[in-house]
Every structure is written in structure tokens, then in C-alpha cells.
Computed example of a mutant assay.
Amino acid sequence: MPLQNRVDPFGNLTTVSSRGEFLGNRGILHDESRKIVKPWAHKNWVICELSFKGIKRELFSPGSYSELFFLDEATALSAGNKKSGHS
């Protein structure tokens, strides 16, 4: 079952099966059962590339930030995010 970690253009967290092209976060938003319990831990948005140096993460792991996904860059930017690139 998909997690509630897809962000729509209005900044709402939804549950859909498509992963998206960009990753973002607003801190730890989930509980031990991987359910969203708050809309943000901080008001800053971050958007990053999905792939970086082959690092793989377990989604919604305990004590770590909640991975959020955006369908595309336009969706991420319209949700109020700022782009952060990697070199």
C-alpha cells in the first residue's frame, strides 16, 4: 500500500502509487506505524533529486525524516518549494 507521501501542487500530502521525479521533506511527519501525524515539522520545504551517489533509503524509517515525492518540478515549485541541486 502506498504511503501518504505524495505532494500535490497545493502542498497537500496524498496517497497515490506514482513515485514522482523529485524528493522533498519537511522533517519527521510520521509515527512508528508509518502514518502521517502532522503536516510539517518545520515550515521550510526542500526539493532534491531522487538519485544521489547510489544511496538507498528506507521510506519513513524510525527517527528519520519523512520522504515526500513530487510528480515533477512544476508540482514541487507550485507547492512552495525551493530547488536544491547536487553536484
Score class of each variant (00 low, 15 high):
residue 1 M to S: 15
residue 2 P to G: 10
residue 2 P to K: 14
residue 4 Q to K: 15
residue 9 P to D: 14
residue 9 P to A: 15
residue 12 N to T: 10
residue 13 L to P: 03
residue 13 L to A: 11
residue 13 L to H: 09
residue 15 T to C: 12
residue 17 S to V: 06
residue 17 S to W: 09
residue 17 S to N: 10
residue 18 S to K: 07
residue 19 R to H: 02
residue 20 G to H: 01
residue 21 E to C: 04
residue 23 L to K: 00
residue 23 L to I: 05
residue 24 G to P: 04
residue 26 R to K: 11
residue 26 R to H: 03
residue 26 R to Y: 03
residue 26 R to S: 00
residue 28 I to Y: 00
residue 30 H to M: 01
residue 32 E to Q: 06
residue 34 R to V: 08
residue 36 I to Y: 04
residue 37 V to W: 07
residue 40 W to L: 12
residue 40 W to S: 13
residue 43 K to P: 02
residue 43 K to M: 14
residue 44 N to M: 14
residue 45 W to K: 05
residue 46 V to Y: 10
residue 46 V to K: 05
residue 53 K to V: 06
residue 54 G to N: 05
residue 55 I to S: 04
residue 55 I to M: 09
residue 56 K to G: 02
residue 58 E to C: 06
residue 58 E to K: 05
residue 59 L to E: 10
residue 59 L to M: 10
residue 59 L to T: 08
residue 60 F to A: 01
residue 61 S to T: 03
residue 62 P to D: 10
residue 62 P to L: 08
residue 66 S to Q: 02
residue 66 S to F: 04
residue 67 E to G: 01
residue 67 E to T: 04
residue 68 L to E: 00
residue 68 L to R: 00
residue 70 F to Q: 02
residue 72 D to A: 12
residue 75 T to N: 02
residue 75 T to Q: 01
residue 77 L to T: 04
residue 81 N to I: 08
residue 81 N to C: 15
residue 83 K to H: 13
residue 84 S to F: 12
residue 84 S to C: 11
residue 85 G to W: 13
residue 86 H to R: 13
residue 87 S to V: 13
